[in-house]
Design a protein around this nucleic acid. Structure first.
Lengths: 235, 235
DNA sequence: CCCTGACTTTGCGCGAACGCAAAGACCAGG
DNA sequence: CCTGGTCTTTGCGTTCGCGCAAAGTCAGGG
């Protein structure tokens, strides 16, 4: 992970929901303070528990944010997609990062010093509203997952997770919709609160039914409607 | 639920974290637009799926916010404590309320028209930051619960939930710390993703060990340290 | 005062999913 | 081409917690 000296092309970010309705001048000022950083596959952008020194925006690539529990178990909190804000610990009034962000593929992020956060929010009311919506949507997603974890059996949860991945990170191919970054059974297990064994069994079964196509760190959804039927039996 | 015409005493809210560092004049202006509402036990402040017409602050009492899943299962999203902001659907960019808020005891809330939200946030940068922290803390709590749901067995989850309730809504009594509002086994089950049967069994067992004292819609934590040992075995 | 409805307790059997175990497949690097 | 490590598959026994069932308890209203 090393900083680039190149300036950021504003046209790359102007259309992001986060910056919607922001004055061009304010956006330009904001971007002038940003640092672009290239992150190689497997590199971590920040580590759980370390002091929150910056907040970030993902421009290109994919990141996995995970937490380790006190007794050493991994949980994947979320996948960061291009255009997503992440590492905004300051907004949560936390001094440290609650999770570890690791690049699933080579990625490009831009970062701001965390100390800028309050000033940025105070001087850009429109951005404040957009950022709040971003965080609010995260909250919504978290509640959705909580609801699933509380009420649905493992098979439905995994089906939902796979469908979400296909929607957020799918690349359409001849065979179907391929998840556009390397993802392991273990990853899916950590997203759905189960074990890699169970995920493997499910995916094998689904592959037998022609719903998906698996592979080492690969996953392609062949029959999304069929999967949706597993995810929501009556709907 | 009926609106009161009485003006709100600013001294009641001035010290809330949400309004910290806000200019008194701005706070006064904000309060002038607020409507106090008294809510009787069992009344709902807003219903899941209904159009979000207002956002709220709880001054006194307790509310339970729950969601019903597509297949009819209840999940308790959170308990609203005095000083908490709730029903801020607009901040999540949602047109409707994602859950139902019901008064566990007679409560006093103040409400603002939802249409005011954007203006309030835009014209009160300090409040925007505070509100974002509030939402951020919700997100943090949701992640904590997700982590628990993913990695811990039911007994630990219930122990955590009870400890949190005691901390957030506990009243110290001779015998121990009493949860300060009526709460059923079903409620606790909906907070922890289990069934009332399992919760009942656990509480009975704990009562046998002198950790808690149960009762109809009552719960008192006798030995918090003992419960904490169940919640986090290795310490 | 009794009746009704909501809440709670407890027993029992079952099944989904975990934990453990072992083997097979694939990739990268030497 | 071999080797080591990572990832995946599959089998088997176990168990935690659910589902079902039934009875007991409590509070409030008629």
């Amino acid at each position: 992970m090393k900083a680039q000296s190149v300036a950021i092309d504003i046209s790359l970010v102007r259309n992001l929901p986060l910056f919607r309705q922001m004055e061009p001048a304010a956006l330009a000022r904001l971007m002038a303070r940003a640092t672009p950083v290239r992150v190689l596959q497997g590199d971590t952008v920040f580590e759980q528990g370390s002091q929150a020194v910056a907040f970030y925006l993902l421009l290109h690539g994919r990141l996995k944010v995970s937490q380790v529990t006190a007794d050493g178990q991994q949980v994947m909190v979320r996948v960061v997609h291009p255009g997503d804000l992440f590492g905004f610990a300051r907004a949560l009034a936390r001094p440290d990062y609650p999770g570890t962000a690791k690049a699933a593929v080579e990625s490009l992020v831009i970062s701001w010093p965390m100390a800028d956060w309050d000033a940025v929010v105070e001087t850009n009311p429109r951005l404040a509203i957009n950022a709040m919506q971003t965080i609010g949507q995260r909250l919504d997603e978290a509640h959705t997952r909580l609801r699933e974890m509380s009420t649905q059996e493992v098979e439905r949860r995994v089906a939902h997770a796979v469908l979400r991945l296909a929607e957020k990170a799918g690349r359409v191919e001849a065979a179907g919709t391929r998840i556009d970054f390397p993802i392991t059974r273990q990853d899916i297990a950590e997203m759905t609160g189960t074990t890699l064994h169970t995920v493997s069994r499910l995916l094998s079964a689904w592959e037998g039914q022609g719903l998906v196509e698996g592979g080492r760190q690969k996953l392609t959804v062949i029959d999304a409607a069929g999967l949706a039927r597993i995810a929501d039996p009556q709907g």
